[in-house]
Amino acid sequence: MNTTTNHTPISLITGGSRGLGRNAALKLAEQGSDVILTYRSNAAEAQEVVQQIEAGGRRAVALPLDVGHSQGFKAFADQVKTALATTWQRERFDHLVNNAGIGIHASFEATTEAQFDTLVNIHLKGPFFLTQTLLPLIADGGRILNVSSGLARFSLPGYAAYAVMKGGIEVLSRYQAKELGARGIAVNTIAPGAIETDFGGGAVRDNAELNSFVASQTAMGRAGVPDDIGGAVASLLSPGNRWLTGQRIEVSGGMFL
Rank of each mutant, 00 (worst) to 15 (best):
T3F: 10
T3P: 02
T8R: 15
P9E: 06
I10A: 09
I10R: 10
S11T: 15
S11N: 01
L12R: 03
G15S: 09
S17M: 08
S17A: 15
R18G: 00
R18S: 13
R18V: 07
N23L: 09
A24N: 14
L26G: 01
L26A: 03
L28S: 10
L28P: 12
L28M: 15
E30H: 09
S33G: 00
D34V: 03
T38F: 03
Y39H: 15
N42P: 11
N42I: 05
N42G: 04
A44T: 09
V50T: 11
I53A: 09
V61D: 10
L63Y: 09
P64E: 14
P64Q: 12
P64C: 03
L65P: 06
D66I: 11
S70C: 05
Q71K: 10
Q71G: 15
F73S: 06
A77F: 10
A77E: 07
D78M: 12
D78Q: 15
D78L: 14
Q79T: 13
Q79D: 15
V80H: 08
K81Q: 15
L84A: 07
A85H: 08
T87M: 01
W88L: 04
W88D: 07
W88Q: 05
Q89M: 10
F93P: 11
F93Y: 14
H95R: 15
L96P: 04
V97A: 09
N98P: 01
N99T: 06
A100R: 11
G101T: 08
I104T: 13
A106T: 10
S107V: 08
T111P: 06
T111F: 13
T118C: 10
K125H: 05
K125M: 08
P127Q: 14
P127C: 07
F129W: 11
F129P: 02
Q132T: 05
P136F: 05
P136D: 09
L137E: 07
G141N: 01
G141D: 03
G142A: 01
G142N: 13
L145F: 02
N146F: 04
N146W: 10
N146A: 04
N146E: 04
S148D: 00
G150V: 14
L151D: 02
A152I: 00
A163L: 02
M165H: 02
I169A: 01
E170P: 00
L172T: 11
R174H: 09
K178F: 02
L180M: 06
R183M: 05
A186H: 11
N188C: 11
I190E: 09
I190D: 09
P192L: 05
E196S: 12
T197A: 00
T197E: 02
D198I: 08
G200I: 07
R205N: 11
D206Q: 14
S212L: 05
F213K: 11
T218G: 03
M220K: 06
R222L: 06
R222H: 08
A223Q: 03
G224H: 08
P226R: 02
G230N: 13
G231N: 14
A232W: 07
S235Q: 11
L237V: 05
T245Y: 02
G246D: 02
I249Y: 03
I249S: 04
E250N: 06
E250L: 04
V251C: 04
M255L: 15
L257Q: 13
